[in-house]
Structure formats: structure tokens, C-alpha cells
Simulated scan of single mutants.
Amino acid sequence: MDPVATALTKPPAVLAAGTSLFLDFDGTLVEIAESPDAVAVDARLRALMICLAEAFEGRMAIVTGRASADIRALFDGIPIAIAGSHGVELCWSDGRIETPERMAVLDHALDRMVALRLRFPGLLIEDKPFGVALHYRQAPEAEPEARAVAEELAQSCGLALQPGKMVFELRAPGAGKGGALRTLLADASMAGTTPIFLGDDVTDESAFAAARELGGFGILIGPPRPTAALYGLPGVSHALDWLEDACGRMA
């Protein structure tokens, strides 16, 4: 089914029994910051994640473009599964970890991005374990050349190009948030449950589609746009309100 640009209704307040919850991080649980390391988890979000972890009894995961280690550090001590680096890294709540080896061509891509930053000092380069991202939020004039470099590297190095909100990311091929959701849902801890995915970016569309195909639904966080999500919430604060309400009802 092709995504349709339309206003989305608010998701149901009561979640049916036997659901699993999948959450994007930036733009969904926290506002997007000028740089990735400027994000912090406040007391409200930490308390919410503890509540959700208890209510869902292991049937919850953060599915993010960030490295899994970054999310573990931000939510230290909270038992949640993490699909990091757009699903390349899988870290289960019981401590199991599945990660491939880093592709050597990512270092070449990193060098090219560093060279481009010499011309556009406002560019921010994010070196991840299994990808490199070029953020142009502080240098919007660099967008055309950043796109051209990213597209050329993706083709010449055999990497997947993942555009996002003012960012171009190169990562190992074959991953994606939709695939990560399917892998997580096949695990014994979540098998047979109905998936719900919250996300804000085009990087989340494959997960919205996967959730829908598996009998669940996606919730788009932010302004309406063409999407595979069935429901929508206007922004991060509304997402947190909805999650708190859902968690309270489950408890």
C-alpha cells in the first residue's frame, strides 16, 4: 500500500493485551538537538521508561539510528532491548548481543566527509560503529554537495544511503528498522504479540510498514506527511503524554 498524505487520528488510549512496543529515540522520545551528544534523558523520560519496561515485561525495544552503546548509557540500568545503527546491532534485554564486523569502507567514507567539512565547517560528522552520518543542520547551504558525496559513496563503496532529518547516513546494506522489528518480534520474548511502533522520520517508514503487515500499527510523531503509519501525534511531548497514559492504564 502506498503511503497517503493525510491527517492522522490519535491512537487508541487503551492497548490490547499481547502487544509489543517499539520506539524510535530522536524526534520521538526526545526533541532533535543541534548535535547528537547534546541530548539528555530527564527524570520524566527515565521514569516513563521504567514504567514501560515493567508494564510490557520485556516486550519493548528502542529501534534507533544511534549506536546501541549510546542508548544503553542514556538508559543505564533499565532492562530494554535495543536495535541500534538502524537495526545492524541487536542487544536483547537479557544481555544477548548480535553485531557484525565493521565494514572497512566506512573509514574511506569518513575521510571523504572530513574533506567536505573543510569547505563547510558547520557540517557535523557522526562516526558510528556501523555507519557514518553527515549532519547539515548547522550548514543547510551544504545540503546539495552533502547529498552528492553521500550518493557517490553509497554507489562506489556498496553502502546503504539513509537520508533523515537534515542528515545523510551511510551504513552497512541489508539492515533497516523494519527488518529489526521483524527480528525482535520473532524472538521468544515477543513472539506472537502485536507490534506498535512510534517514530518520526522517513527512516521509520519501513518499521511502520512492518508493524502494519504483522497485524499492528505505526504512530507518526510530528506533522502529517505521506506515511505507512495508521495514527499520529503532533510532537514529542504528545508522544510522552500518550505513553504515560497507556502505561498507567496497563498498570
Score class of each variant (00 low, 15 high):
A180P: 05
G174A: 15
G178R: 11
Y231G: 09
L181C: 02
D187A: 08
A191I: 05
A228W: 15
A172N: 15
H135C: 03
E152S: 14
D187Q: 13
I125Y: 02
R171L: 12
E244R: 04
L181V: 10
E141P: 00
D204K: 09
C157K: 01
E145D: 01
G122K: 00
E205V: 15
K128I: 12
P223N: 08
Y231P: 07
I221V: 15
L159W: 12
A175F: 13
L220I: 05
L124I: 13
L124R: 10
A133W: 00
A228S: 14
S237F: 01
Y136S: 07
L161Y: 00
G164L: 07
G215T: 12
L185I: 04
A186L: 01
R137N: 11
A154Y: 10
E143Q: 13
A146T: 02
P140C: 12
A133R: 02
L185C: 12
G178V: 13
R119H: 11
A229M: 09
H135V: 03
E143K: 06
A139R: 10
P226Q: 15
L214N: 06
D187N: 02
G131P: 00
M166T: 06
G235M: 00
G218L: 06
L159C: 12
L220Y: 08
I196L: 07
A139K: 09
T183E: 14
T183C: 13
A180T: 07
L170G: 00
E126H: 03
L184D: 11
L170V: 01
L214C: 03
H238C: 13
G199M: 05
E169Y: 03
A210V: 08
A146D: 00
C157S: 10
V236W: 11
